[in-house]
Design a protein around this nucleic acid. Structure first.
Lengths: 120, 120
DNA sequence: GCTTGACCTGGAGCGCGCTCCAGGTTGAAT
DNA sequence: ATTCAACCTGGAGCGCGCTCCAGGTCAAGC
C-alpha cells in the first residue's frame, strides 16, 4: 500500500489541490492522515474513495448528495441499504440525463446535416 | 402563423419567463415584437429559435458560444460556414461528454451491483 | 546554512446561469 | 368601473462548485 503527496493525489485523482482541500473541509473526504508536520498523506484507500467521488461528480450528483453518501459510508455496514438506494436513485437520474442528451445530440446532428445541405 | 403571450412562450419553450427576458437582454433572442402596450409577442419563428437554444443549452453549450451563434445567425447567409463549424465543434464536445458520462454510468452500475451482492 | 518550492489554514472572491424584487403599467373578466 | 393577474424595466441577489489569496511553516537539494 503506497502513500501519496497532496500534489500526487491531485494528479492521480484528477481533482485540483484546492478541490481536495475543499472536499475535506465539507466532509466529502475524511480521515486523511497527516504527517508530523501537518501535511496530508493520501493512501490508496483515499484515492479509491476519490475515484468514487469522481464518478458521482462526473455523473452530476449534487454535492449535498455526495455529502450524504459520504456520511453513510462513514457509518459502516448498517447503512448499506440506504447507500444502495441513494445510488439507484442517482442512476435513474443519470439515465434520464443521458436520454435527454442523446436526444438533443440527434437534433444537433440534424441541424448540422441541414447546414451541410445548404453549402456549395 | 400564430403568436404567443410571454407566458405561453415560456410554457411552450420550457424556459421560464425570467429566462426569456434574460436571453433577450443578453442578445440570445432578438427581434421579438412588442404590442402597442410594450408586451412581448412571440411568433412561431421565435419559438423555433428557442428550440435551437434549448438544444444548445441542454447539450451544455456555454452562453458565450450561444451568443456568438446568435450573432452569426443574425448576420445572414454569409455566416453559414462559420455557424456550421461552431456546431461541429460543439457536437464534438457533446460526443466527448456523452462518452465520459456513459463510462461513469457503467462504473456506477458496477458499484450498484457490488452493493446488491453484499445484501442478504 | 540557504534557497526554493510544496504545503498549511481561514476566509474572501468568482463565473455561471439564472432568479427575484421593487415599483409601475396594462388588459381581460366581472 | 373595478379588480386582479399578467406584463414591463433595471438592477440586485443567489446557489453552486470551486478557486484564489495572504500570511505563514516545512523540507529537500545545493
Amino acid at each position: 500500500m503506497s502513500t501519496y503527496t497532496p500534489s500526487g493525489a491531485a494528479t492521480r485523482s484528477g481533482f485540483s489541490l484546492d478541490t481536495l482541500r475543499y472536499y475535506e473541509r465539507i466532509g466529502l473526504l475524511s480521515g486523511v492522515v497527516r504527517s508530523s508536520s501537518g501535511h496530508r498523506v493520501f493512501t490508496d484507500g483515499d484515492l479509491e474513495w476519490l475515484g468514487v467521488l469522481r464518478c458521482l461528480r462526473d455523473t452530476g450528483m449534487p454535492i449535498s448528495d455526495m455529502q450524504r453518501y459520504a456520511e453513510l459510508a462513514r457509518d459502516g455496514e448498517q447503512t448499506l441499504t440506504e447507500r444502495l438506494n441513494l445510488l439507484r436513485e442517482h442512476a435513474k437520474a443519470v439515465e434520464e440525463h443521458l436520454a435527454l442528451l442523446a436526444d438533443q445530440y440527434r437534433h444537433l446532428q440534424a441541424k448540422i446535416g441541414w447546414y451541410e445541405g445548404q453549402l456549395p
